[in-house]
């Protein structure tokens, strides 16, 4: 096995792995080792996926979740970018307040959900707040780090042309920070999705998280698998799209 592994070999191996997993799944489903439908047969999951594709309720809930994630990303992302620019632009402010964001970032945000319910009610507001709170931290930290990485020469060129603060932001800072900003957006999207969906599973009457809990309470296991597959596929797809659109390779930036 040399370093020049042919792409064909990789593709074939992937197909073989997928095939093996599906075969093992089907064997487990038919074995009767687990309670009925805990591992449903592939045919049942495919049927549930087909049913989901034609269910108007699914699209209504998908729109609800997408709107909540979109608004939370817009609010949390813009506040995160503003905070990041402020902290990255001032050494004193960065040293004073960035450690708080750095250490608060990896805390479990879902425990703030009762607070968000008190502040914004049990409707979409509290879910949006959860998503915004979740995505604020990675966006702010990455923006601040990106701000500090800007080549000093570019900033001096902008100042020598007497660029106004707005011109500095749009002509120098944002173009020079496009990779960190997009990376922040990508990470922010990932955590906003988690924040919104988890909040929907806890207390909601709409959204994909609510649908997952409905399947759970009705013991509709094929339906739950189908929903989880769709949610995972959508999350990975949007993540990959943001990376590709921005020319990002997650391992490089």
């Amino acid at each position: 096995m040399t370093s020049g592994c042919p792409a064909l070999g990789v593709g074939l191996l992937r197909l073989a792995i997928l095939g093996t997993i599906l075969l093992l799944w089907e064997a487990l489903a038919r074995s009767g080792l687990l309670f009925r439908d805990v591992v449903p047969s592939l045919a049942k999951i495919a049927l549930a996926l087909g049913h989901l594709g034609t269910d108007p309720d699914f699209y209504r809930n998908l729109r609800g979740t997408a709107a909540e994630v979109g608004v939370s990303l817009a609010i949390g992302g813009s506040i995160g970018v503003a905070a990041g620019l402020l902290l990255g632009g001032s050494r004193l402010l960065g040293k004073a307040f960035e450690p708080y964001i750095h250490y608060l970032g990896p805390t479990p945000k879902i425990i703030f959900f009762p607070v968000m319910i008190m502040w914004f009610g049990i409707g979409p507001g509290s879910k949006i707040a959860m998503g915004a709170l979740s995505c604020f931290f990675p966006v702010a930290l990455i923006t601040a780090a990106g701000m500090r990485q800007i080549d000093e020469v570019l900033i001096r060129v902008g100042r020598s042309f007497r660029a106004r603060p707005w011109q500095m932001a749009t002509k120098i800072y944002f173009p020079a920070m496009r990779y960190p900003l997009l990376n922040g957006l990508r990470l922010g999207f990932g955590v906003a999705v988690i924040g919104v969906l988890l909040a929907e599973t806890k207390m909601s009457n709409q959204g994909l998280g609510f649908m997952v809990m409905q399947s759970y309470s009705q013991f509709d296991m094929p339906g739950m698998y189908a929903l989880l597959l769709v949610v995972f596929a959508l999350a990975i797809l949007v993540n990959a799209t943001i990376s590709r659109l921005g020319g990002l390779d997650s391992t490089q930036h």
Binding site: C5, G9, L13, V193, V212
Partner: peptide, 25 residues
């Protein structure tokens, strides 16, 4: 190495997926 090339991007995809949503399952 071949297995790594086939699976590494899958593992990276899983790292970005909302795995905690599996809790009802």
């Amino acid at each position: 190495r071949l297995l790594r090339r086939a699976c590494e991007s899958w593992v990276a995809g899983l790292a970005a997926a909302p795995l905690v949503l599996l809790y009802p399952l």
